[in-house]
Every structure is written in structure tokens, then in C-alpha cells.
Simulated assay, not measured.
Amino acid sequence: MNNPVNYPEITKNGLWNNNPALVQLLGLCPLLAVTGSVANALGLGLATLLVLVGSNIAVSMIRKAVSDAIRLPAFVMIIATFTTCTELLMRAFTFELYQILGIFIPLIVTNCSILGRADAFASKNPVIPSAVDGFMMGLGFGLVLLAVGAIREVLGNGTLFADMHLLFGEGARDWTVHLFGDYSGFLIAVLPPGAFLATGFLIALKNIIDTELKKRADARKARPVQGSKRVRTTGAIT
């Protein structure tokens, strides 16, 4: 009998506990290369999310029909198919953004987090849980992309949501927010070292939060034990 699916746990793992970028440290090449702005980060995040959900669903559907000998090649072919479909969609509807992201769209095929979810989760679970897992893992990865892109855009150019028309059309040209009146820019933020620094900051912040949450959880567990000891001691003295 199959174990019940724990959707809250799947959600928590994708967004926080097992985040592909902050915990597994997978997919760092595109994360560091194309997160110079929110528009770039959002485009790559949506593309990765689409491939993750689609490949997880397809892998789950064929999981009982594929032998162990050809399992991984079959998974790679599925991921490559969805990556090609995503690439063609971007070329058709967001061609300028596709040109900016360049080789990192086809390289989604080699993203270890996508193959890892296909092998570790989708190949062992039904379609709906696999789709949820792919969506949450993709969303967690995309949120980190957005955070890094926002940090680099704000520090590097003093703007936010610039060039969003590349993704949402001409109506989004006026979405740019200028945060500083006369800002000369911070060059290192828009260069690759800026991506390393921003990512390291986010990983450190997550570790600090996790440590603090663990301390509070341990303190809550310790209180009832200490209270029961006091009761037993008082009874013995009486």
C-alpha cells in the first residue's frame, strides 16, 4: 500500500528545507550568470519551472514502463524535449529575452536539480504529487533567482523591474522603478563576483534563520522536562 502524500512537506522542501539553490547548491551556473536583473532572473526561473513540472509529470507517467537499464537516458530525453519546447516558446514570444539568456536556456537540460527530481521523486510517485514537487522545486529555485536578480539590479543600477517589457510586452516599459535620483552604479554587483556575493548572503541568511528556529524548537522541547523535574523534586521534599 502506498504511503499517503504529504503535500505540506513537499511544499516546505521545495521552498525552504531542500531548496535547489540554497541547500542542494544545484543550478548555480545560470544562477550566477544571468541574474543581473529581475527580468532576466524571472525569464530563466519561469523556463526552469516549466521544464521541471513537465518533465516530472512525464517521468511519473512512464515510471512503471521503463526499466532500470534505460531509466536515466529516458529521463534525459524527456527533459531535453521540454527544454526544446520552452526554447521555441521563448523564441516565438520573448525573442529579445531569449537572446539575452542565450545558451543558458538550452543548458536547462543539464540542470542537475531537474534530473535529480525526476529520479528521486517523479520516478517513484504518482502524477499529481510529482507535478506539485516539480512546481515547488521550480518555484523555490525561481524565488532565489529573483532575490539575487533584485539585489544585483538595485545595487548595480539603482533600479528595479527594468526591461520587464522583454517578458511582458510593451505595456511593461513603464514598470521600471528608479530607487536613487543620481546613482552612478556599483560595478561589482553587475559582474559575476556580485552574483557570488549575493548568493552567499542569501545562503548565510537562511542558515541564520534555520539556526534560530532550531534553538527555539529545542527551548520549547526543554521546558516541559524542566517543569516535570521541579514537580517531582517538590513532591520529594514534602
Rank of each mutant, 00 (worst) to 15 (best):
N2P: 05
N3D: 12
N3K: 13
Y7R: 09
I10C: 02
K12W: 12
N17Y: 07
Q24N: 03
L25N: 11
L25P: 00
P30C: 01
T35G: 03
S37Q: 07
A41M: 03
A41P: 01
L44D: 00
V53W: 06
S60R: 08
I70E: 15
I70L: 15
P73E: 08
P73N: 11
A74T: 15
F75K: 11
I78S: 12
I78N: 10
A80M: 06
T83G: 14
M90S: 03
F95P: 11
L107W: 03
V109G: 10
T110H: 06
C112F: 06
I114H: 07
R117A: 13
A118C: 15
D119S: 10
V127Q: 02
D133W: 01
M137Y: 07
M137A: 04
L143H: 02
V148Q: 09
A150K: 03
V154Y: 03
G156F: 02
N157I: 08
A162Y: 04
D163Q: 15
H165N: 14
P193E: 04
A198M: 10
A204S: 14
N207S: 14
N207G: 12
I209Y: 09
E212G: 01
K214D: 11
K215P: 00
R216T: 15
D218W: 11
A222P: 10
V225F: 08
G227V: 08
S228P: 02
R232H: 05
T233V: 10
T234N: 09
T234I: 11
G235T: 12
A236I: 09
